[in-house]
Structures are given as structure tokens and as C-alpha cells.
Design a protein around this nucleic acid. Structure first.
Lengths: 212, 212
DNA sequence: CTTCATTTCTGACTGTAGTCAGTTTATATC
DNA sequence: GATATAAACTGACTACAGTCAGAAATGAAG
């Protein structure tokens, strides 16, 4: 006997008010955090301000993000994934491997250049802890990058544009390590972006065993 | 006319009481911090405790170290420099370059293995900010590592043990980037030390264009 | 509508890194 | 020794990330 089980209507919709409230709240939090981080910077934004702007209590904020750094992930992960996807998707087919790699990495640097302060924080508080521990989940992003790179290597080998015999995934990791390291020095402010790209190209060339 | 300029005696020694006091205080601070960090760990040690153990006010602590992280540098920089120096100095002469590199990096990993928690903090709070900004000075350490690696490359090329034409310093940076990245994954706890060494060896081999 | 259980929310509170105005100590000069 | 200047020190204080015991909202069942 089915009596009062809720069906889809205004007062008791399928998703449930509870679930919808949660999603709306999360959306408000992310939106508030994005604006504040952009306008005032990460360090200058307090979790109180984010909570206020999102119209929730301070405690609630930490039910949606385990830490202030996790908020950054909520705010930027999708954009970074999109950037990486687009970078790989927009590659021409038969170009030299080194040029393809540089296109991918410079696209990603373009994204970071919009806000280098943020990039520093992303690198330190997100990329780093994620490689080293497990707080904010960026495994999807890393999968896209590593997978994309390994794919490029494998295809280049098939086409005869790359000769070495090493495992494509290992080469991909090697290349990413160099990109990561280049980002560090670039964002450290001691070298220009131009110099960084020049060096990165040479490092990538060393890794794939070609002339820069 | 030279009248009352202080000369070396008990009450007015050449170094000056002020300077000696400072050095003694610094020594007490470093010693207190070392013990506490070792016994309780970094996060569990408060700056208050360090100040108390060193018998100084909390404010004074921050005259000797700009931040809690800087204290770590005071405590460990010399040991790390010593480790790196020894690692390079104890290399045999004519071995294959890849073996030499692995010896250097595994020696450094041995040091970190004594206390991996500390290694994580060192990596995140010291190596990282130092590459990216400029807080705790570890440039001497980095000079030793980069210089030592570049030297190995150059010598190996002279001896015919390494053939590629890239700039030795750039190859050194490339190798270090791979070591740094290996440390990250190792300390992330998702791979064993053995796996890490195996991977590192392959990455280094890729960089110097040889078979692992 | 009423009860009851469960989920979600809240803001006063805690712990700690780092600061700063005021104090003490060391040195220089007479 | 007395005084003045500068260096070094201090601990009460501030600011902020994150917690938690209790309150409020939601939904299930009669």
C-alpha cells in the first residue's frame, strides 16, 4: 500500500529540498570565494568574509571545504581541467613533438599568467599537497595532463617523430617534472616568462633526446 | 689620541658582550628547536615552547627567525649541506654516470628517510618557498647540488661516459627536477622507497639518454 | 498535525603564529 | 661614574583557521 511517498511536485520534488539547498549553498560559497580571491587575493581573504558573502555561518563553510585551500580547488579545478583539455585538443597532428609539448605547456602558463599570485598558491597549496598528501582532489587534472602527454609520446613514436624506447608514461612524468620546476622558477620572479619558456624548451629537448 | 677604545680583556672583549649574547641565544634557540621538533614533531611544537626552552620571550624568537619554518632551516640546513657534500665527495671516479647520480640521490634520500615527516615539511616549507619566493636561505645548498651535478655531467662527458651536447647546468637542473618530483611521490606515501628509486633511475636514464 | 530521528547549520570558542609599544641592556662619550 | 644613544628584548595582544556542543531544519511515519 503506497500512501504518502513523495512524488514530484512543488513542495516535495524528486531531488529533495535538502539536496537542493546543499547544492545552492555550495554554489554560493564557490561564487563568493571566487570573487573574494580574485578581488582581494588569497591571503587577504578571510574565511569569515567568504562565509558572510555566501550568507552562511563560519562553521558551515568547513562542512563544504575542509580547509581554506580546498576552497581554492573548488574555485579553480574546473577551469584548470578545461585549460588542460583545450590545450591538448587544439594541437596540430604531425608537428614535431617538442613543438607540441611547448604548445601544451605555454597554454597552461597562459592560464597562470592571468593571476600569478593565485598560481603561486595553487602550486604550493594544491599541486604540492596533492602530490605529497591527499587533501584537495586534483587527480582528474593530473590524469588529463599525464595521460595527454603520454598519448603525445606514443603517437609521436608511431609516426616516427620520436625515437626513444622509454615507457611513454615515464617520459610524461619526466616532462611534467620539468614543467613543474619551470613554473617554480618563473613564479619565483627571478626569471621572465620568456626566459622560462626558453629554458623549459631546452629541458624538454634534453628529456626527449633532441636538439632544442 | 687613542684613549678608551676597548681592547681584549674580561670586561670588554673584542667580540663585545652584545654580539656574544646574540650568538649564545641563537645557539640556545636552535638547540631547543632541534630537540622539540625531533621529539614532538613540527606541527606539535609551538613557538611558545621553543621560546620557553630557549629561555627567551616569544617576541625575541622572531628576531632570530622570521617564521616557524625559518627555524627549521636554522636547524637542518647545515646537516643537509653536509649530506650533499659528502654524497658528491664519496663518489668513485670512473663509474657510469647513471650510477653516480643514483648514489648521490639515494644518499640524500637516506637523510630524509630518518624522519619523513620532517622531510615533507622541509620540502614544502623550505625547498618550495625558496624556489618560489625568498624566505629561508638555502641557496648554498642548491648551489652545491646543482654545481655538483653539473660537474658530474661535465666530467662524464670528458671521459666519454656521457655523449649528449646539452649545457651541463641545464642537464643538472633537469636531473634535480626529477629527483624533486620523485621525493614528492615518495613522501606522498603512495609508493615505496624501492619503487621510487626504480622510477627515479628510469627518469634519470631518460634525461641523460641512456638505458636504465 | 504530531512526534521522532537524522541531517544540517551555527557562532562562540580555541589554539597558535606573529606583532608592536614600551622596557631593559649594552656601548660610546665625556 | 654619569649621560645619551642605539640595540636587543619582552609578553600582552591581534588576527585568523578551524572546532564542536547545541540549535534548527528536514523528512519519515502514524
Amino acid at each position: 500500500m503506497v500512501t504518502t511517498r513523495p512524488v514530484a511536485d512543488q513542495n516535495a520534488p524528486v531531488v529533495g529540498r535538502r539536496e537542493r539547498n546543499k547544492q545552492e549553498k555550495l554554489a554560493r560559497i564557490v561564487s563568493a570565494a571566487r570573487e573574494l580571491f580574485r578581488d582581494r587575493g588569497f591571503a587577504e581573504t578571510t574565511t569569515q568574509q567568504i562565509a558572510e558573502a555566501a550568507d552562511i555561518g563560519t562553521g558551515t563553510l568547513f562542512l563544504y571545504a575542509r580547509s581554506k585551500e580546498d576552497l581554492l580547488v573548488l574555485v579553480f579545478r574546473d577551469q584548470m581541467i578545461e585549460t588542460a583539455r583545450t590545450a591538448f585538443a587544439s594541437l596540430g597532428g604531425g608537428e614535431p613533438l617538442l613543438d607540441q609539448l611547448m604548445q601544451v605547456f605555454t597554454s597552461m602558463m597562459d592560464y597562470h599568467q592571468r593571476d600569478t599570485d593565485l598560481a603561486r598558491i595553487l602550486l604550493k597549496e594544491i599541486m604540492f599537497p596533492n602530490a605529497i598528501g591527499r587533501q584537495a582532489d586534483i587527480s582528474e587534472l593530473l590524469d588529463i595532463i599525464f595521460g595527454g602527454l603520454a598519448d603525445l609520446i606514443a603517437k609521436a613514436r608511431n609516426d616516427g617523430r620520436y625515437g626513444q624506447g622509454a615507457n611513454p608514461m615515464q617520459v610524461a612524468e619526466n616532462l611534467f617534472a620539468n614543467y613543474y620546476f619551470s613554473l617554480l622558477t618563473w613564479l619565483g620572479g627571478r626569471v621572465t616568462r620568456e626566459q622560462t619558456e626558453h629554458r623549459l624548451r631546452q629541458h624538454l629537448a634534453i628529456t626527449i633526446g633532441e636538439a632544442a
